[in-house]
Amino acid sequence: MIVAGCDVGSLTAKAVILGDDRVLAVRIGKVKSRPEISAREIMEEALKDAGLQMKDIECSIGTGYGGKQVPFAGDTVSEIACHARGALWLLPSVRTVIDIGGQDCKVMKLDRDGRIVKFATNDKCAAGTGRFMEVMARVLNVGLDELGDLSGRAKKQLNLASTCTVWAQAEVIQKINEGERVEDIGCAVNNAMANRIVILANTVGVENDVCMTGGVSKNKGVVKGLERLLDIRVKKLRFDPQAVGALGAAVIAGERRKGGGEQ
């Protein structure tokens, strides 16, 4: 049975194809001018990787901001449910899923059966989202994917007082002008981000096992900061964390196809 999930977010589009509960293809790409174009293009790339054609897909689910516009999807499911379902598929013992996407940050708490019993989303503010990290990386003149490694090379503990994107940006510039090392400032940025997520995580109450999804979870500095502040270990997923939502969508598509559990 071949099923697919397609997650069209605010910054990236993701596609995952599953064949008999095995991952056949994963693709991530930047969004295009319209969600339906993003969806079709990313899915076509994934199909190519898997050596399949669109007609081979027996069921597909769309998710994300542009989920409703995925032209080939049989149905849409919220990204909250998809991230939770994807994480659960990868790590059956997971109880808390922290997802940090480009515009949103969410924390989901699952029960033993994998049902979401509680979730919390960020307030209407860019702090605590991927957007915050993007702005900071640009100010520091490092790549977004390099930001996480800075924490490991930091020598001096700097505190970024502000977690507001606007104020923090000013503060980072000030620190650069004061001659602070980029590594130390980067570490402070990562810690500030972690601090911000902790509030949301504590709102739902963290329970082991914990895993992270979304682009920011690739940032080692943030993950370490979260582990320290929440006094937990974040379990690593053997999967691209950015594509977990699309994976969850594919898993749900599989369940729907089998006529199984509704998530």
Partner: peptide
């Protein structure tokens, strides 16, 4: 709350 705008700023 010094995080809003730090004192030195």
């Amino acid at each position: 709350d010094n995080r809003i705008e730090p004192v030195d700023t």
